[in-house]
Amino acid sequence: MQLILNGINHRYGSMPVLSDIDLEIPAGEIVCIVGPSGCGKSTLLRLIGGLERPDEGAVLEHGAPPADSLNPLTYIFQDFALLPWRSVAGNISLALEDHGLGKAKTDAIIDDVLARTKLSDFKTALPRQLSGGMKQRVAIARALAVRPAVLLMDEPLSALDSQTRELLMDDLVGLWSKTPFTAVYVTHNLNEAVRLGHKIVVLSRRPGRIREVVSIDMPLAERADRVGELASKQEQLWSLIRDEAAAADMELIDA
């Protein structure tokens, strides 16, 4: 399944936040969205997943999602959004319970995603017992459990320290290399963008418009060892954003 964003315009009250967004999210690729703070990246992601309705334009699903997909558009949130009163397994089961799969099948899915995210030993732990990185792994496992057609990731590594971030980036690359998935990955971290993105969409300051789309052909799995070559891409992105990021930093935040 492929997503097509068609002439998206969006306002909060009288303030335009997104303007004329046209974008294709091809199947099997990770599209990163970067831009200065307050440029509407997260809003765009909420529009893509149907958590908000665009004022103008539409997000189109092109082609049907795979038949076994329980939740075609699935989010991974910056703050993990785990229920603190449910165990690791319970949090994953939350996403499955409404589908009436039966206990045996639910348990099989939970065991499978826990194994894929190396969480099998923490099945009964409560979120408060886990580090930030582990919590995000649980959220990734929960997202994988519903077999999404497109993963929508809203700054998934921004709440983590830089060491954990490296480890989780490796995990994401590993997961993608085993079974390529489609993803929209919003981040303000350009290093994450060049490590994970097949395409990097640069948004301008508010109201967010697409300034440029940078493609990186290097296979994801090789990027960790070839950071030197990525540095120029990251530099190019930074030069695109730098002035606007500085200007955005001086803006008053009004809701």
Binding site: G49, L51, L70, N71, L73, T74, Y75, F77, D79, A81, L83, L94, A95, E97, D98, R142, V146
Partner: peptide, 16 residues
Amino acid sequence: RGLIRMGQSFGLSWVS
């Protein structure tokens, strides 16, 4: 509210 939005994003029913 983040948890509620998470529930919606996974397609949970209102009752759930």
